[in-house]
Write a protein that binds this DNA or RNA. Structure first.
Length: 789
RNA sequence: GCCGAAGUGGCGGAACUGGCAGACGCGCCGGACUCAAAAUCCGGUUCCCUUCGGGGAGUGUGGGUUCGAUCCCCACCUUCGGCACCA
């Protein structure tokens, strides 16, 4: 047998897999056990990076493992080819986004095939293809019909570099998630998904899915549910009731002033025609336009409006201020200020010398609160809300921190929003049968503040679909996260020309049994997709309410302490395949440590894997000429069965991928030490079979060299013989006062009395007991005896 | 500031349910093979002490629970992540 030649055997088997369409799956028959394995789809820059390698190799191991355990596995791949990441890649490379995106897809697809990943390529979809975005637009129209999409003038996050609006989810520390520039606040007409309509369900249904706790916490915090009360404060002079939201209605008697956000329409109403009008409006204008950066300094400023509101509990008139520490976006944009029990209100009261009244004492009991004095603050929350409720001035209320998802982008490379603006009819949806609204070619697609489509007269000028009069198309395009909110549904039925997907087919596969991707999408993609899924379910288009039943986050691959990612480059997997082959890279990336932990890239690590695979090749090859009798019971046979048990448990139950490689290494070590064991061939076959999900090429080649029947990728997963897992002798640990003093080999299954007797007989134990009286003896059968003296 | 996760040899990590700390691999040391080197194989490798029998310490730090703690509890330190005027 020749030496291990990774390139020869990898090319060979990749060709076979392609010719035989080895990883293509049909729709499952009813009751057929099936499994939907998915990893987050990549943005198509030209090159794979090590993060992709980790992500997709993980999914690949699960895919092979599940296939060989009798499941029909859907494991597709596609490209998030619209949107900022793809467009910026095109700008960087200088050229037409369509051309560059398609070239990048071709290049990255070739690299994926070279990694040997078990992907059903017949189901590939790309977001920029008209056959895909037609249905993105179709889904948009359904959201519009159901009142879950709207257009509104609103303060939005504007990235001055990328020249576009960003969703709240993609502003990180006040900066753009793609380019890192500081984001500005701008008032613009924008399109929103009404994700807030599902805030309570998005929160509650987290209990129904098997996700990492930290991810659930991120989403929980982002949704930010607060229970409290909505209370009405009256402004008698204007005959006006202003609602406020508070989580602490128990402190109402301590509300000594009232504050309105600078952006609030109330500001104008409160000061109209008064002597303070000019001053207050000037303040509000400046405060509302304050740059994001200054928010970190947080020095509270404000101005008195000259108006007063009535505290509904005390009847006292309290001054109304406008101040920049109150946010328009949360609650009602106005608050009751309780300086005694709220740090922010306290700071403001000190600055402007406003009265402070304590209403809850150090023991948490109410004071200065009339008939409520003496109640615990928790009791008072209910009591005061109920009391105000009787007078129609308060009710229990729940508030969410989550805001609607702004998804229109003033950029070229995205799905056009399929509506027409008509002077007479307003916003008119493009009829379904006119979809897709094709993205036209434009001469200059680069960002310049105005959406590039706006200057394409041919595209823009269309008759209104409703009245036939002159209309103009929407020039903004959709955020790439709209595309990726439903791609996993398209995979189930990728060639459907009548609908985005057939419900019955989608229901057969959904929900995704195992989703794998970065935690950086915790409050973006992973939240948007859940929202889409719930809406589609409500309209009867889909049978599930959650898209991702189980979720796993792979760690980051670091180089010199820095995370390698799409934008930063780093080590090129393509070059590593040239140098070492795909199997060594696959093993290396999973052997480094637990897959959910960050790993450091080191060049000598991969050489070690090559060395292991050469040894694996040689040791297995040496056993090829032998035969192993059925059910032979030798130490090596036992080791092989133990390895089956460990690997199966590690992947199937524990979802860990590094220790199985170590287990196979141990088996190979033992096989190489005892080549004449009658179970040598069985051990070799077992090692090859178990390592196949990690290193499918070399294992397939060795499976053939061993003369085993059929294709390994279709072979059933090995099953451990329970009788060979039971040990005849066990090593008994002997402790004195909790310290290990001896280890002896004893037959398994001895009684406690027998074990204690053996322990007392040990010379080393006796030396440490040294005649002292035994106070206690602890026995763990087959494991340990601890004598306490 | 608030919330959460993680800290184990020279290095990556293992120890799954409170029961042998350091599996597996890297690196290093020694040996075999070789004219030599590479490759390969064999042995050693937590630290300290040792009369070579063994003894002591040890999983970020300090305490606690327990016969027994890397694992559970409390406090602190460090690193990473989430939120960041959310009323």
């Amino acid at each position: 047998m020749d030496g291990y030649d990774a390139h020869r055997i990898e090319e060979r088997w990749q060709r076979v897999w392609e010719e035989e369409q080895a990883f293509h799956v049909d729709d499952p028959a009813p009751d057929e056990p099936c499994f939907y394995q998915l990893e987050m789809l990549p943005y198509p820059s030209g090159h794979l990076h090590m993060g992709h390698v980790l992500n997709y190799t993980l999914g690949d191991v699960v895919t092979h493992f599940k296939r060989r355990n009798g499941f029909k596995v859907l494991r597709p791949m596609g490209f998030d080819s619209f949107g900022l990441p793809a467009e910026n890649a095109a700008i960087k490379e200088g050229g037409n986004p369509l051309e560059i995106t398609e070239r990048n897809i071709a290049s990255i697809t070739r690299q994926m095939r070279r990694m040997g990943w078990a992907i059903d390529w017949q189901r590939q979809v790309s977001a920029h293809e008209p056959t895909y975005y037609r249905w993105t637009q179709w889904l948009f129209l359904r959201f519009l019909e159901h009142g879950l999409v709207y257009r509104k003038e609103a303060p939005v996050n504007w990235c001055p570099f990328d020249q576009t609006v960003l969703a709240n989810e993609h502003v990180v520390d006040g900066r753009c998630w793609r380019c890192g520039n500081v984001v500005e606040a701008r008032l613009m007409a924008q399109w929103f998904f009404k994700i807030t309509a599902y805030a309570d369900q998005l929160l509650a249904d987290l209990d129904t899915i098997d996700w990492p706790e930290r991810t659930k916490k991120i989403q929980t915090a982002w949704i930010g549910r607060s229970e409290g009360a909505e209370l009405l404060f009256r402004v008698p002079e204007l005959d006006l009731d202003i609602p406020v939201f508070t989580t602490r209605p128990d402190t109402l008697f301590g509300a000594t002033f009232f504050v309105v956000a600078p952006e609030s329409p109330l500001v104008e109403q409160l000061v109209a025609g008064t002597e303070r009008e000019a001053e207050v409006l000037a303040y509000a204008r400046i405060a509302a336009a304050r740059p994001t950066e200054e928010r970190e300094q947080r020095e509270k400023t404000g101005v008195f409006t000259g108006r007063h509101a009535v505290n509904p509990a005390t009847g006292a008139e309290i001054p109304i201020w406008v101040a920049d520490y109150v946010l328009m976006e949360y609650g009602t944009g106005a608050i009751m200020a309780v300086p005694a029990h709220d740090e922010r209100d306290a700071e403001f009261a000190r600055t402007y010398d406003l009265p402070i009244v304590t209403v809850v004492d150090d023991d948490g009991r109410l004071v200065n609160s009339a008939q409520f004095d003496g109640l615990s603050w928790r009791e008072a929350v209910r009591a005061i809300t109920a009391w105000l409720g009787e007078e129609g001035r308060g009710r229990p209320a729940i508030n969410f921190r989550l805001r609607d998802w702004s998804f229109s982008r003033q950029r070229y490379w995205g799905a056009p929003i399929p509506v027409v603006h008509c002077d007479d009819c307003g916003i008119v949806p493009v009829p379904d049968d006119e979809l897709p609204v094709l993205l036209p070619e434009v001469s200059d697609y680069r960002p310049k503040g105005q959406p590039p489509l706006a200057s394409n007269e041919e595209f823009m000028n269309v008759p209104c679909p409703r009245c036939g009069g002159p209309g103009r198309r929407e020039a903004d395009t959709m955020d790439t996260f709209v595309d990726s909110s439903w791609y996993f549904l398209r995979y189930t039925d990728p060639h459907n020309t009548h609908a985005p997907f057939d419900r019955a087919v989608a229901d057969a596969w959904m929900p995704i049994d195992q989703y794998i991707g970065g935690i950086d999408h915790a409050k973006g993609h992973l939240l948007y997709s859940r929202f889409f899924c719930k809406a589609l379910n409500d309209w009867g288009l889909l049978g599930v309410r959650e898209p991702f039943q189980r979720l796993f986050h792979q760690g980051w691959v670091r180089l010199g302490g820095k995370r390698m990612s799409k934008s930063q480059g780093g080590v090129s997997p393509d070059e590593l395949i040239d140098q070492f082959g795909a199997d060594p890279i696959r093993i290396y990336i999973l052997f480094q440590g637990p897959a959910d932990q960050d790993i450091d890239w080191t060049p000598d690590g991969i050489e070690a894997t090559v060395r292991f695979l050469r040894r694996f090749w040689r040791v297995v090859g040496d056993a090829a000429g032998r035969t192993s009798p059925e059910g032979v019971d030798t130490p090596l046979a036992r080791k092989a069965h133990e390895t089956i048990d460990r690997v199966t448990d590690d992947v199937g139950r524990r979802f860990v991928f590094n220790t199985p490689i170590a287990a196979v290494m141990e088996l190979i070590n033992e096989l190489s030490r005892s080549p004449d064991d009658p179970a040598a061939r069985f051990a070799a076959e077992t090692a090859v079979s178990l390592l196949q999900p990690w290193a499918p090429h070399i294992c397939e080649e060795l499976w053939e060299a061993l003369g085993c029947s059929g294709r390994l990728w279709e072979a059933p997963w090995p099953v451990a013989d329970p009788s060979l897992l039971e040990r005849e002798t066990v090593e008994l640990v002997l402790q004195v006062n909790g310290k290990v003093r001896d280890r002896i080999s004893v037959p398994a299954g001895l009684s406690e009395e027998e074990l204690v007797a053996l322990a007392r007989a040990s010379e080393k134990v006796r030396a440490h007991v040294d005649g002292a009286a035994e106070r206690r003896v602890v026995v763990v059968p087959d494991k340990l005896v601890n004598i306490v003296v």
